[in-house]
Design a protein around this nucleic acid. Sequence first.
DNA 1: ATCGGACCTGTAGTAGCTATAGGTTCAAGA
DNA 2: TCTTGAACCTATAGCTACTACAGGTCCGAT
Lengths: 148, 148
Amino acid sequence: MDAAFSIGDLAARTGTKVETIRYYEKSGLMPPVARTAGGHRAYNKGHLDRLAFIRHSRELGFPLESVRTLLALSDRPDQSCAEVDKVAHNHLRAVRDRIARLRSLETELVRMIEDGRHGQVGDCRVIEVLADQSHAHCLHDHHDGKDL
Amino acid sequence: MDAAFSIGDLAARTGTKVETIRYYEKSGLMPPVARTAGGHRAYNKGHLDRLAFIRHSRELGFPLESVRTLLALSDRPDQSCAEVDKVAHNHLRAVRDRIARLRSLETELVRMIEDGRHGQVGDCRVIEVLADQSHAHCLHDHHDGKDL
DNA sequence: ATCGGACCTGTAGTAGCTATAGGTTCAAGA
DNA sequence: TCTTGAACCTATAGCTACTACAGGTCCGAT
């Protein structure tokens, strides 16, 4: 018999919005849960832990799909460590990729802006670079653009 | 009388998907354009330049909203340079913010993963960290999560 | 009993495309 | 000239991870 928590309690204790918790339920990360007579969700400590786990994972940038996997793995602790490691390493690699792409972006932006500074007053190099047909200033890294 | 380009021509010359060009039109970045008798879009060199400008901006990570602004500014080249600079600097700042957040994320991930390595075989520290109630491993930078 | 806040469901919106479905037009070869 | 197949058309739904309504119900404290 653990004390029952309302959805608002869970939200407050995990720093999550109520709507987000309902969204997690709808997308299968949180289980459908017992209801009060009036239809309000009644959670217990286990649900609180699960939500905290989800939030920590999200804070570390894991996509919901990976969170799903991590939750499944955490339910059977035997033998799961290698798989957990794989998920974590994949994510780390993704993060590092993003950093690398953003850094080359940063370089390009700085170059474009600096370029403008040295031009004579009155013509805007930034616009010229953006309009440039020659594509000479372009990043050679033609990524699919999913994010940056 | 400039030669007419089909939407496919524009797509090929700018490395854009046809659907994307139509999407740009629908969202007001590309103007509504003359049609052939059969209803196909007929573009000219000006449209090609405009699309190239949009794509260059996107490659540099400018959001469409900023691209809209940059396009407007590029149409009146007098006096626009300061505003263009402002947009570019704002974007640069946003990119640097993202890099900073991703780097602290990277640090956290590495710590979590390394932590796991030093634990004894068989218990999974990664899962423990994610499940940790104490929140001790958490990023202090509680960002709104719009990205990362 | 009442009243205000918390809860409910369902839907639409965010960014920036991408991917269908179901139909029409165009251009090149026979 | 006819045919055929690629390219075009519109409209709509899907992607991520939420967030924000609208319109209604429930609960707990006074």
